[in-house]
Every structure is written in C-alpha cells, then in structure tokens.
Design a binder for these strands. Structure first.
Length: 545
RNA sequence: GCUGGGUUCGUAUAACGGUUAGUACUCAAGAUUCUCAAUCUUGCAAUAGGAGUUCGAUUCUCCUACCCAGUACCA
C-alpha cells in the first residue's frame, strides 16, 4: 500500500517546550523529510485549565529557531492555521477549535457498544480511590468495577436519559473488553503484547466542557489528518493498547498509523528524567529559548546562552540516535539523509552538557570570520566599542587608526580589525560571548591586574627589562607585522640573555592585566606602539616599579 | 503495589553468535609555546548478577537486581 508519509508533532501549550520535546519534533521532521512527506504541527489544547498564555507562540518560535519548519499547521508568519486552505486542508490545527468534531465520534462508539456514559462525579471517584488506598488497594475503573458504578451499563435507560438531559458532569468512557491480548508493533521496540484486563476504562469525552480527552482527540485527528506514523515520547507507550483498541472500534485499522515510541531524556547525574529544576541547579538550559513565566521567573534558553541552533540540533539528534558509523557532525540536510528509526536507542539517554558545549565549539570554528565578526559587534558595542565599516568616515570623525585598524584611545575599530581578532582567537572560544573575555584588551586597556600574577611577575628586576623591551618597540622600524614584532622582541631578549619567561609574563601583565593569555606579539602588533607605551606607563603608575 | 519499557567505560554510543569489546565527550600525563588556551601523542575506564541454549553469548531464552514510564474528567 503506497501511502504518503505524514507525521505530526502535537504539543500541548502548557508551558515552554522542553528540549526533549524539541528532540521529538526533530525526529518527526527528519522522518518526514527523508520520506518526502509532510511534517504537521497540531496544538493539543483540550485541557483549558492548564493553558498557559504564550506557550504556543514559544513552541513555534523555538522550532523555527531550530530550523524545524512545519509543512502544515503553521503559516509563514508562525501562526497556527485556523481556516482550511489548499496547503492546510485539515485546519483548524488547534484541538480547542475542533471541538464540534469529536462528540459524534464518541457517540458512534456508544452506538456500537464500545463506550458508555458514566455519571460518577469527581468526588465519588476520589472517594473510591481513597477507600481503595486505605485498604492498600488501587481503584481502577475497569470491567469489574464499572458494574458497581453509576453509568449507562448499570442504570435503567430512563434514568440514563434523564441524567444526560439534566446533568452536565457526565463523561463517555471506553468500554475496555476483558481478557483480550492486544498485539502491537512499535517501530523502535518491536512486538509488544498486553492483556486488556490490566487496562482501565479511560474517559474519552467530557460533557462539562464538551471537549475530548487526549486519547479520543488524538486518534480522531490522526485519522482525519491521515497521519502515517506516530513518533512520540515513551510516556505514551502504556496507552498504546487503548489507542489500538480505539482504531479497531472505529474500524480504522486499515489506515492506522505505525507507532514509534522514543525514550526519554534523563538528567545528567542521578536518576530520573530531565526537569526544569536540573538546569537551574546544574547550570545548563533545558529549554531552547529563554522563558519567563507569569510570576516573572525566567528559565535559561540555549539561544540566549549563546548556542548556535545548528549545534543544539546536532547535539539533540545524537542523543539516543546514531548514524551507524563514527560521524558526529551533521547539518540538518545530512541528518535528513542519515536518520533512521531503527538506529534510535531504546534506553533513555542521559543528557551531557559538556557535549553540548563541545558541539558549539565545533560549530563556532566552522563559522567564517565575517560571520563571527557580525555576531561579535553587538557585544563590543555593549562594552562601548565602536566598529566602523568604512575607515575613512571614521577618520573624519577624528579616529587615528594604527596599522592593525584600531584607535585604542577613542575605542574605534575597523570591521577588518574585529575580523582579524576573531580569526586568530576563535579556536579558544566556545561561545561568541567568550571573545570579550579572551580579547577585551585588544579593544580597551585592562582595568585591573590579577594580583596573583602581579605578586609573581611584577618585580623590579623584571620591570626594568620590560621597560627596555618597551623602548625597543618604540624605536622599532622594521616590518610592523606579528612575525616582525615577535621576532624582534625575542631576539632582543635572547641576545641579552634575559630570562625570557619572566620578561614576557611581566610584559603581558602590563598589556593585558594577566600573565596568561594571547601571544605578546599578537597583542603588541594590534594595539600599536603608542598604546603599548601607554599601558606600560599605566602599569608602572598602578603597580610601581 | 500493579502493568509496560529498559540495562556496554563517568556520559553518548559501535560491535551478521566468533574483535586485544571500537569511537566521541570528560578526565590524567607528555610534546609544543613567553604564559594560558588550542593542537598533537599517550593513557584511565564498560558488557548489572545468575542460570540456560551453543564448539563459541555483549548479541538468543529464563530468573534476579536496579532504573524509567504509566497507573487522572493532564497531556
């Protein structure tokens, strides 16, 4: 049977999308694209009590950031589609807006004997549960207990009709058959069998808000939207038998989608699934984007923490899936090509924040100097640094550029200067924000000196030698290049048989505020003669000689 | 508790029933460098336990242990 591949990601807007949710969406997307099919977004908002404003927008924005773009369900403005069109034939894609659809399906089940009306109030059910718990038992609404509850199977017809008419807190429950083995197949886990005696009579539809529960809405919409594969989280595995039974009850077995249940993302240390708290506690984001809740509390996001979406997606893809070989770096297109459900791991994957950083470092190195310069400019501006594309315009504004393209006194730099800085420092950075920590002193003089290094290197005998090297630079008339400056300094120190390590470290301390950091020649070349002189003098006046 | 799912170095994972059980991250040491980082080299480190099937089990079966999920008029 030829069937178009159509998969869906169906989040409920009860809060920000968790990174585990992003992974589920990603695997759906990869599967759809690999098979030339459709990736659909459907919003499962059948629980009005748990609706969180902004959550739906967050989900779409997060997926867009990751490059997971739906074919159907969301329009090009990032809005969930409400009215049918050629591209979105199954609109609306919000279950709350599909409300009128579900009731008739629930009643069809009743007519065919697969479901029944239940009139037990929430209080009665709670009481039954409490009672069972008191006798160390668990109350389950099933084939046995249903006969002692208030429902259309136990009440006389007139009473049922009266209650349906006069009350509004009844529900429609699935009538789970007894002692039937449900035989299921999962694309990841293989064959699974469950006896219906262990299952309960799930509520499918609620009269109170006239809304279906997840189970009914899910099956009806997947059927109506012609979903071919359902790829979802492992938390749904226990309800798979019910879903199989529902397809059977509706007579939709022929077009029932195939199922794949993904393992969960686990916390880095200890046991249990990854939760919002872990991120706060261990210092990494669990959400793709920054989220602010109604109390004004924020949760970190990968985007705001400086991760590249490519790195985030690549990292997520490799959590619980592998291509079958040693490759680790994948673009989205390469993932589409390589992905396969049977390489998805059955066991839960512990998330490793270190690996996430490693991925970002790798992707940062893959960026061109131009891209990195563009990304760095805003950070520089926050620190009061001006970057000009056009050196001449800046000159008229009063800048006096050195050879490298910087005016350290006026804090104006050419874009080429920024480019050259990222070019030779990018192998030291994990995030774009790291550049400031690594190279701030190529833009502005150090504001303080690390005391430990001062104690170790800023000694009178070293300072005297540093000043002599300073004089050498002042009088330097060779090629003003990194190599030229570097060779001159080293040869000068070596020919005088001075302790090169001590001199260089003290020199760096004066220029950068720390004994460790970039190469002396790299610094001197960029800041220029004038600034080098100025920093030596500042160091002497601040630290003495 | 019950039902279902799961279990290879610390982490992510590889290995037609036959390998000295491989790779990456992390960590450690060495090389390199004026320092730090990067880089390169080397190293540490695993089949949960027990039966069985088999000439041979990480791989198949069963039992135990542990972990996870579900057990709602939530998804």
């Amino acid at each position: 049977m030829e069937r178009r591949t159509r998969v869906r990601f169906a989040p409920s807007p009860t809060g920000p999308l968790h990174m585990g949710g992003v992974r589920t969406a990603l695997y759906n997307y990869l599967y759809a694209k690999q098979n030339g099919g459709d990736f659909i977004i459907r919003i499962e908002d059948t629980d009005s009590n748990r609706f969180v404003p902004g959550a739906e927008e967050y989900i779409i924005e997060a997926l867009t950031w990751c490059g997971i773009i739906p074919d159907e369900g969301v329009d090009s403005n990032g809005m969930v589609v409400e009215t049918p069109s050629e591209r979105h034939p199954h609109a609306p894609y919000r279950q709350s807006q599909r409300k009128p659809i579900y009731r008739k399906y629930a009643e069809q089940l009743i007519e065919n004997g697969y479901a029944y009306y239940a009139f037990d109030s929430a209080e009665e059910l709670a009481e039954a549960r409490a009672k069972a718990e008191a006798s160390k038992d668990t109350f389950i609404y099933n084939q046995v207990s249903r006969m002692s509850m208030r429902n259309s199977l136990t009440l006389p017809k007139e009473e049922v009709d009266r209650l349906l008419e006069e009350t509004t807190d009844w529900t429609i429950r699935f009538k789970m058959p007894s002692d039937t083995v449900v035989k299921m197949d999962d694309l990841i886990r293989g064959h699974i069998e469950v006896n219906t005696d262990t299952l309960d009579d799930k509520v499918l539809w609620k009269r109170a808000d006239e809304l279906p529960t997840y189970h009914l809405a899910n099956i009806v919409d997947d059927h109506l939207m012609e979903i071919s594969e359902v790829i979802r989280g492992e938390e749904w595995l226990p309800s798979l038998p019910l879903h199989y039974m529902l397809y059977k009850a509706f007579g939709w077995e022929e077009t029932m989608p195939r199922f794949a249940h993904l393992s969960l993302l686990l916390k880095p240390i200890g046991n249990g699934k990854l939760s919002k708290r872990d991120g706060d506690k261990m210092g990494f984001p669990v959400f793709p984007l920054l989220w602010t809740n109604s109390e004004g509390e924020t949760s970190r996001g990968y985007r705001e923490d400086g991760y590249f979406p490519e790195a985030f997606v690549n990292m997520l893809a490799m959590l619980g899936w592998n291509p079958g070989d040693d490759r680790e770096m994948f673009t989205m297109d390469e993932l589409v090509e390589a992905f396969s459900l049977d390489k998805v791991q059955k066991a839960g994957a512990k998330f490793n924040p270190e690996k996430a950083k490693w991925y970002n470092r790798e992707y940062l190195r893959l960026k061109t100097d131009d891209e990195l310069a563009d990304l760095l400019v805003p950070t520089l501006e926050e620190h009061g640094i001006n970057v000009v594309d056009c050196p001449k315009c800046a000159l008229t504004a009063g800048a006096e550029f050195n050879v490298a393209g910087g005016d350290l006194q006026k804090h104006i730099f050419t874009r080429d200067y920024v480019k050259s800085v990222v070019s030779f420092t990018k192998e030291r950075a994990t995030f774009v924000a790291d550049f400031w920590d690594i190279a701030s002193y190529l833009f502005t003089a150090p504001k303080e000196y690390i005391q430990k290094d001062v104690d170790k290197f800023w000694k009178p005998e070293n300072v005297a030698l540093v000043m002599k090297v300073g004089d050498l630079i002042k009088a330097f008339d060779g090629d003003w290049t990194v190599e030229g400056v570097g060779t001159a300094i080293e040869e000068y120190i070596k020919s005088n048989e001075w302790p090169i390590g001590k001199v260089m470290n003290a020199f760096r301390l004066a220029l950068a505020g720390s004994a460790s950091g970039l190469g002396i020649a790299d610094i001197v070349y960029r800041i220029g003669k004038k600034e080098t002189r100025a920093r030596l003098e500042s160091a002497v006046s601040a630290l003495g000689n």
